[in-house]
């Protein structure tokens, strides 16, 4: 089995904070501890204001090992309201990137 990763389509991440709270609940993290953190990037571009969000898995992210061992998706991926996150083999997720611009791939561990 190869390394696993988190694929995020930031064209569609709305910054809704679901992944953050899903992670805290799953791991019983108190407020102040984050397994994933959403970053907001707001910039004035040529003729518009560009608003992007990008969730960043922290060093506490274990890719929900307790869930994936049972075939469940990580809690952030399952609950993502924009359905813009995927979990899987890095080699498979890279292929997704071939087809979809505005994406990033994290290999947290």
């Amino acid at each position: 089995m190869g390394r696993k990763g988190l694929f995020i389509d930031y064209e569609f991440c709305t910054g809704c904070h679901t992944c953050e709270v899903a992670c805290k609940q799953e791991n019983s993290y108190p407020a102040g501890l984050w397994g994933i953190k959403v970053n907001e990037i707001v910039l004035e571009s040529l003729d518009k204001v560009e608003i992007n969000y990008l969730p960043f898995p922290t060093e506490l992210c274990n890719l929900c090992a307790n869930r994936t061992v049972n075939g469940e998706r990580p809690s952030c991926v399952k609950h993502c309201q924009a359905d813009c996150m995927k979990y899987g083999e890095l080699t498979e997720l890279v292929k997704e990137m071939e087809n979809k611009p505005k994406t990033v791939l994290f290999a947290p561990k």
Binding site: C16, H17, T18, E20, V21, A22, Q25, E26, S75, K78, H79, C80, Q81, D83
Partner: peptide, 23 residues
Amino acid sequence: KVEGDENHPFSQGRACPRLLALT
């Protein structure tokens, strides 16, 4: 613990932070 119901046609397993903080 609170999870979204993936078999539900309204939300397909998705959930908002307020629902996930229900406890």
